[in-house]
Design a protein around this nucleic acid. Structure first.
Lengths: 133, 133
DNA sequence: GATTAAAGGATAAAGATTATATTTTAAGTT
DNA sequence: AACTTAAAATATAATCTTTATCCTTTAATC
């Protein structure tokens, strides 16, 4: 069961119908850009405002309910917050998928001889997915 | 000696004064956003057009003379193309510095049991730099 | 030095994001 | 269950950001 209502409230976000729909869209499609999200939402809320999308994406980011993923040469996509992982991006079809990589292991080696206090590490791997070759 | 003229031509780019200045700016400052680059350039070319900055950044990217670095929560910066490396970004002062990380090592492990053909891997490490803590 | 395709500059156009004002509503309270 | 209120949604304007267009200038070749 996906109780997005509770999950939203846990992040200090009111559970509005629009936010529940955004949650479902991110859950079902994994990684979605602002404009495809807007298109999706228009199906369910014919009169939704694009400003609503932006405002919600921004507050959801602030409250760590979602995460942004910046894609090389392409639009930023958003995903529901989950345990640490990296991303595979197809340069052909632009699809994004999660992949488990032990980034911490590599990053921790650096930390030893460095005064930089690491908080996170974002790894985006580009290439051609199995459907595109 | 920094012969940006030859380096530009090697990438099929005409060596104009504006492009030489962009080259110097990236070389001297390492990582620069569009608008700070524009401000820098205005010092040298009082009447330079912002469109010139954009057009040059785009063609320099296409010809791999420069690389983009997408920063979490912040503006994209650009750097001269050099050997593979990762980036440290300070969430406080926003400074960006290069760091040598053996990303290939980790990424190659994935390649084995995956049909995804990897072409590159971008790693951006966020945290607080030594000047900011 | 002459030729020409490419680049620069000025500005308009298009796209993306944020701000403002008003209406609506989720969530807590009575 | 209706009442209250701060927050959210909507519509739209305003503000960036980026690209396109048109005309002028120039780097590179001969």
């Amino acid at each position: 069961m996906n109780n997005f209502t509770d999950e939203l409230r846990r992040h200090n976000l009111k559970a509005t119908p629009q936010r529940l729909a955004i949650s479902s869209a991110l859950h079902n499609y994994g990684h979605v850009s602002i404009d495809t999200l807007y298109e999706m939402m228009l199906g369910e809320f014919a009169s939704i405002s694009l400003a609503t999308i932006y405002k919600n994406i921004n507050i959801m980011l602030e409250n760590s309910y979602i995460q942004e993923v910046k894609i090389p040469q392409n639009k930023t996509v958003y995903e529901l917050t989950k345990s640490s992982h990296s991303h595979l991006v197809c340069v052909d079809c632009k699809s994004v998928e999660d992949v488990s990589v032990d980034v911490d292991e590599i990053v921790n080696k650096l930390n030893l001889d460095d005064t930089f206090l690491i908080s996170k590490a974002d790894l985006v791997i580009s290439g051609v997915c199995k459907n595109c070759n």
